[in-house]
């Protein structure tokens, strides 16, 4: 293993030269349907927006408000929760539980003043590669229209306050 010759930083790659803002979207997917749907999009080489990162869980029922709120807290511009279509859940009703968790999360998100458009719930089957790609494109565009999450640009302010406290 050779260490990199160039200095690797965690700064975003900006070689495109265009400093246009791009959203940071977190996608939660269930193993059996929506994650598989994303794979199907891959097998079919269905190009789509690249600004999302995915976390796989076994069932959408596992996706709890804490995960979504944490993502927003950390500065996510959008969060997509996805699972199997009704009737297709590998665990019978896990996705129906996911709806309850999602509704709860949405309640909180609205109260907190985060635009509801930054959070979305979608059902995507393992076969629906195209649907996956379309939803990603659509949601990315929707979040792009909303602009950066107010929480994502707060890091500097945090630092300022820390300075204030320390000083």
């Amino acid at each position: 293993m050779t260490k990199a010759k160039t200095t690797i930083t965690d700064q975003p790659v900006t070689a495109t030269g265009t400093e246009t803002w791009q959203p940071r979207i977190l996608v939660f997917a269930c193993n059996w349907c929506s994650y598989a749907g994303a794979d199907t999009a891959g097998v079919g080489r269905m190009e789509h927006e690249p600004h999302f990162r995915m976390i796989r869980v076994m069932c959408s029922g596992r996706i709890q408000p804490a995960f979504v709120l944490k993502a927003f807290e950390k500065g996510a511009d959008g969060v997509l929760v996805s699972g199997c279509h009704f009737g297709d859940c590998h665990y019978i009703f896990g996705n129906e539980r996911a709806v309850e968790q999602f509704d709860k999360t949405m309640n909180m998100v609205k109260l907190l003043g985060i635009e509801p458009g930054r959070l979305r719930l979608e059902w995507i089957s393992a076969a629906e590669g195209i649907r996956f790609a379309e939803i990603i494109n659509e949601f990315t565009e929707q979040v792009r229209q909303l602009g950066p999450s107010p929480l994502s640009s707060k890091r500097l302010d945090d630092l300022r306050i820390e300075e204030e406290i320390d000083g």
Binding site: E73, L112, G113, I114, S153, K154, D157
Partner: peptide, 8 residues
């Protein structure tokens, strides 16, 4: 913490 960050 979201409230603490404010802005919204």
């Amino acid at each position: 913490r979201i409230m603490a960050k404010g802005e919204m």
